[in-house]
Amino acid sequence: MKKTLAVAIISFQEGLRQRVLYGILIFALFMMSAAVLLSGLFMRDIAKITIDFCLAAISIGGLLVPFFLAVNQLARDIERRTIFTLLCRAISRRQYILGKFSGLALLTVTIVAILSLSAALAIWTSNVIYGDYFFQNLNIQALAVAVGMSLLGVLMFTAVVVLWSCITTSSFLVTLLAIATYLIGHTTEDLVRFMASPPPGVEISPMVQHSVTAALYIFPNLAAFDLKLAAAHGLMISGGEILFLLTYGIGYTVAALCLAIFFFQRRDLT
């Protein structure tokens, strides 16, 4: 545990000092300022647009961790052989993977926390500028749940990127696989719904149906964690749904990490 924590701390420190992180923060803050200014153009939906913008900024800011920092920290660790620096200590490969994931998770939580504070500031500023009338439907609880689920979705996605880093040998391939996973994770649920009730006259082959259903089960269903729309309308999802998402997210993350450890323990680091 102590060694896993040590790897987590060094990964967190390394992530914090990477310039890409400051880029993420500047970009997200810019998006939130834009939210305050642009929402004024949509008089009837000021609250919705502000919240939508803020949640999108949080989501994008969080996603850049798996896309940039996770790839940078894991795949390039192996490519550049920085990994030897850690593994030459009495650190097992399992501790390395868990430590790296914990460091990235800590980084994601930090980024999401900073962005959430900025989002709260942006919503409060919009409220002050445009008045309470437009923010009658504001549901803080729904917003908090949306941010929490977005965080869980990012953590789950990070675990998958960790898995790809353990299987493949190049950081470029890991990035490609991460993009593919993200696209599949956001579209399969819609495809399954579409197949469940196809428009009249449209016939979908069983092969395609099975493939899409398999993809839904194999790849992380990232769309399920996107609660921006509900939060923007002040709608709260049910407790059962929250519990299901929590179980699914944590279960998938644990499974992905177990697989990552399994593959990484068998990998030759040459």
């Binding site: 060094i10 420190q13 390394e14 000092r17 990477q18 550049r80 052989r81 920085t82 030897f84 620096t85």
Partner: peptide, 8 residues
Amino acid sequence: NPCLYENL
């Protein structure tokens, strides 16, 4: 060719 973490 030791590689240490370059930002640390």
